[in-house]
Nucleic acid binder design. Structure first.
Length: 111
DNA sequence: GGTGTGACAATGG
DNA sequence: GCCATTGCCACAC
């Protein structure tokens, strides 16, 4: 930390800016922060987010297939689906329903 | 400074 | 159309 947390911070910023009831992908976030190939590192950053002691709506972040890959990394595996359903997003078989419609591109909606 | 890993993505068979 | 492999970038040891 404190070395190049700009990358991590960028990931958190984008993730926090995901609108209510919307979801995005690791690749989209990576691209939005200027590293389209760092999709894996995005997940890494989110994993460190809880290590830092801050909360990130990672439940809105899924892989390009719309699958809740990292749900198991939450405090409770079901919490991810709970939050998504609470936002009006339907999750079936750990997958986002109407993922294409709910997909939010930070690069297009960035302020 | 090199190696391994990590919640992915894209391509090939 | 699905399974397996490689590639990306950044961080931890």
């Amino acid at each position: 930390m404190r070395s190049d947390d700009s990358f991590f911070n960028a990931v958190y910023e984008v993730t926090l800016q995901v609108p209510f009831g919307r979801v995005t992908t690791y690749g989209a976030i990576a691209k939005a922060i200027g590293s389209p190939g760092a999709s894996r590192t995005v997940g890494w950053a989110l994993n460190n987010c809880h290590t830092m002691g801050i909360f990130i709506p990672a439940h809105r972040v899924v892989n390009r297939n719309g699958i809740l890959t990292g749900k198991h990394h939450f405090r409770h595996p079901d919490l991810m689906q709970e939050l998504l359903e609470s936002e009006g997003i339907k999750v079936e078989d750990d997958r986002i329903v109407n993922f294409e419609k709910l997909f939010w591109d930070p690069c297009s909606n960035l302020i």
